[in-house]
Amino acid sequence: MKTLRAIPLWPVIRHLLLIAGAVVLLAPFIWMISTASKPPEEVFSSELHLIPHHFALWDNLKIAFAKANLWRFLLNGVIVTVSIFVLQVLIALPAAYALAKLRFLGRDTLFALVLFGILIPPQATAIPVFLLLHKLGLLDSYAALVLPFTISVFGIFLMRQFFKSVPDDLVDAARMDGISEFGIVWRVMLPAAIPAVTAFGIFSVVAHWNDYFWPLIVLNSEQLRTPPLAVAHFRNNEAGTNYGPLMAAAMVIIAPLLIAFLLAQRRFIEGITLTGIK
């Protein structure tokens, strides 16, 4: 009897709790949009209001784009993340195929190294890799941003696991049909692994679009800045004076990934939680 009466109550409590949590979690986003839409005199007022009296989003965006070359920084972000992902796939897929489907001496050792590599956090190798790039004269270039991440042991591991589930028969059929081992990687394995490659791609692009540590270390030139670095510099130059345009700039930097996420939520959540395995 008691449970019967409790039934209509629980969904209400559930929604109340979840909505309250959502408001707290979304507060920074709401505040960011609100501030980005306010003129300076409203930003610098102790009185709290969410909806601006005078809608100034376009002005703030205009100022943001005028003060910082945001298009350029967004383009840098695209160049860097796409190059990293493409190179990661080009390098990881053949290795993953060999580890999954071919027998050769030393295969197990190589795979053990891959597993070990996954454990190494990226910050741990920062100093030597920085020194290496310094020696090669590559610091402060796209190469410095891309090169260290072209090898993704995690990508090799993930693809290898996926390829394991591709039936051996398919590989044999391809050999009977006259496809070379190298051709099998691109003509047979890659198309079969599209879901895994997509998930890995999302994981990789999100991680490197949002990365701050590495660009901070290797970059000097303004024109090479990636989006997070751009926001950081914008903030260092403007903080305390110009919150409206700063929030507008933050919005612009966050927008591409958030929009992509809202369009393909399931795939994104799949991709990002891959880090869970890492």
């Binding site: 039936p167 044999d172 059929a173 198309p191 079969a192 599209i194």
Partner: peptide
């Protein structure tokens, strides 16, 4: 020519 148990058709 070989015909496989799982047919081994290219899924794509």
């Amino acid at each position: 020519a070989m015909v496989f148990q799982s047919y081994a058709l290219y899924p794509h």
